[in-house]
């Protein structure tokens, strides 16, 4: 049963992470092009740092760092009278009431806490990539469009909201759809973050340590299981490709780009 639910977990993760990452990316990009220097540094630093650290090690490292960071903050806030150091040699020790989630909490809280940590990690990582894409897209909007807005007497905030943001999507979409494909393919990493997803079940089901020397008397069905997963991901990719292509057509309509021009002539 848990196995079937794990497909739901993957879809849920995608459904939650994509908008969150987009929001992270949007704020990252808008702060990276802000006029206020510290805000700009934060935005640019966020993009540069997260994009610079390579993939899988980042996930492995980040999930523990995030977990320990939260516990450390709670420890500081909740247990004032704790006098031992937190890091004792190789162990990370915080007082009981700072444990996150509380050790007395029911199982489902533990699971959803792990899941939300995973979502947060994904969102932070993909947010940086999305920020980079959106940052480029905002710069790709023809300068003349913003100049026209200024000529009409719009304030920078107005022209940002009414002119820049509606127009940037068509420039951002190729990058974002690429990112979406990567996001789909990154979901198997969930199991690294301790969430019971499809790969977790895969390892569980095929979990003999030295399989190299084990020969099964019965037919080995795990191959078909992974074939099914492979097809699942391929189908998912194909569907996304088709949907994104449609979306691109829709967004190009009436834009001052060569694509929009071609659509106008075709009518």
């Amino acid at each position: 049963m848990g196995f079937y639910a794990s497909f739901g977990t993957v879809l849920l993760l995608l459904a939650i992470t994509a908008p969150t990452a987009l929001a992270f990316g949007f704020f990252g990009a808008s702060s990276a092009r802000s006029n206020i220097a510290p805000l700009r540094w934060i935005g640019k630093g966020y993009i540069a740092i997260v994009r610079g650290v390579p993939d899988i090690a980042f996930f492995l490292f980040f999930i523990i760092a995030l977990d320990q960071g939260i516990e450390y903050l709670r420890h500081k806030a909740l247990c004032r009278d704790w006098d031992q150091p937190i890091r004792q040699g190789n162990d990370f020790i915080v007082c009981d009431s700072a444990k996150m989630p509380l050790s007395s909490a029911p199982q489902w809280i533990h699971e959803s806490y792990g899941f939300s940590l995973a979502v947060l990690t994904f969102a932070i990582v993909f947010g940086a990539f999305a920020a980079n894409v959106l940052f480029g897209a905002m710069r790709a909007v023809p300068r003349a469009q913003i100049e026209t807005a200024e000529a009409y007497g719009m304030t920078p905030r107005q022209s940002f909201r009414r002119i820049l943001v509606p127009q940037m999507w068509v420039f951002a979409l190729p990058g974002l759809s690429n990112l979406w494909m990567v996001l789909i393919k990154a979901t198997p990493l969930l199991f690294l973050l301790g969430v019971e997803d499809i790969v977790y079940w895969a390892r569980e089901l095929g979990g003999t340590k030295t399989t190299r020397f084990t020969d099964y008397p019965h037919g080995d069905w795990r191959m078909w299981y992974f074939l099914f997963l492979l097809v699942f991901y391929l189908a998912f990719t194909k569907v996304s490709e088709i949907v994104l292509e449609r979306l691109m057509k829709r967004l190009t309509r009436g834009q001052a780009t060569s694509g929009g021009e071609a659509q106008r002539k075709a009518i």
């Binding site: 198997p188 990493l189 790969v199 037919g219 191959m223 492979l230 991901y233 391929l234 194909k238």
Partner: peptide, 24 residues
């Protein structure tokens, strides 16, 4: 499309078990 459209992770798993059953 096959190798770019699916996660490398799943490819590894699938190939391993494919080889394992071919071994039989």
């Amino acid at each position: 499309f096959l190798f770019r459209g699916s996660p490398l992770f799943i490819q590894f798993f699938f190939a391993y078990f494919l080889f394992l059953s071919l071994k039989g």
